[in-house]
Amino acid sequence: MTTAAPAAVTAPVPGEEPPRRRRVSRDSVAAWGLLSPNLVVFGVFLFIPLLATVWLSFYSSSGFGPREFVGVDNYAELFGDSTFWRATANTFLYALLTVPVSLVIGLGIALAMNKPLRGRGVLRAIYYVPYVISGVVIAVAGRWIFNENVGVINRLLRSAGLDGVPWQSDAVGAMGSLVLISIWTKIGFVMVVYLAGLQSIPKEYLEAAQTDGAGRWQRLRYVVVPLLKPTTIFLVVLGVIESFQVFDIVYVLTGGGPGNATEMLVTYAYAEGFDARRQGYAATIGVVTYLFIAVLTALWYRRQRAQEADL
């Protein structure tokens, strides 16, 4: 009886599928059914445009009319294009200046907002508002603030008897205005994500550290920051991707100038695609930008995984 029972359950009956396979098959159908809406959306709005961009990068095209297949000519031209390399350097610099600073400031604000504080909700909203406002609106406001001739900052400086800052005509000033505006918009989001991370840290860890004699700084340095590592990885990856996609603020605030001092990869792609109407070349810039982001993200994840494995 005891030996026959399992045989009765597992033995395949001729002409009938094994229940396990049937279940797997049903699960697969259900899984594909649930995945398919997302796959369709990703396919139509992400994968197909991505493949089309790669395809277009091998053509010379004004966007309409006949296209001419040029093989890898666009890539060859790109690697010898000094403006492209300047835009690449600017984009890396922009990411390097905005991501770490916005993380540090955002974490500082999150730590402050994580404590009982009168008007905490209002303050959180105030910090978060710039992140949800359109980049174009932010940049237009930035034009009034950083305008070299009639902007708010320079007027205040001049009324105090100081020289105005060359926000528009000097490379450092222009990049500075972009970085300041960008950090202002980013810290709200960083604060909210760090707040979520802080609230998931068990209080017992901090209490145990305090019992062991750890001071406020040591608790932050040796308990809070390590436990926020997944949050930080997420924010760094997202921040770098956002930095490589920056367009609206640059387009409106500096237009890539002076010279090419604030030209970024995406603004350069736009200029080539829509001002110069070289859409094949613009697609090439897009493909290379995509590769930069993919490689940077992969390297960052790999480094983090290696560090976690060492721990």
């Binding site: 305008n147 070299e148 001739n149 009639v150 060359p166 528009q168 005509s169 500096t254 237009g255 890539g256 100038g257 002076p258 010279g259």
Partner: peptide, 19 residues
């Protein structure tokens, strides 16, 4: 104004403001 180069600001507004 150094801000009125080819990538700079449009100039008509500077005229109306007296710059």
């Amino acid at each position: 104004p150094p801000t009125t180069s080819t990538k700079g600001s449009y100039v008509d507004e500077l005229f109306t403001t007296g710059t």
